[in-house]
Amino acid sequence: MSQAQAIKDLILLGIPDAQVQVVDPDGHHFEIAVASKAFKNKSLVEQHRLVYKALGNVFEGPVHAVQIKTSVINED
């Protein structure tokens, strides 16, 4: 399983309704886009914290840094 897929699975575990795209340009810096209803009424910091929480301690491994882009799913 690729690192990108592992990241995607981790996020879906933590944020079940999330729509997740993971781009892996060089194996160390991952670009992650996450859309979820869970982000509603949350500041950017809180939104990103949810993603970091889902990722757990993935940073101790080969993943050096991630670029996160969050967006809110507003459907009721």
Partner: peptide, 12 residues
């Protein structure tokens, strides 16, 4: 207060 890392600061 934590404003964020590179992504958020750049976005803001």
């Amino acid at each position: 207060e934590l404003v964020g890392g590179c992504d958020i600061v750049a976005n803001l």
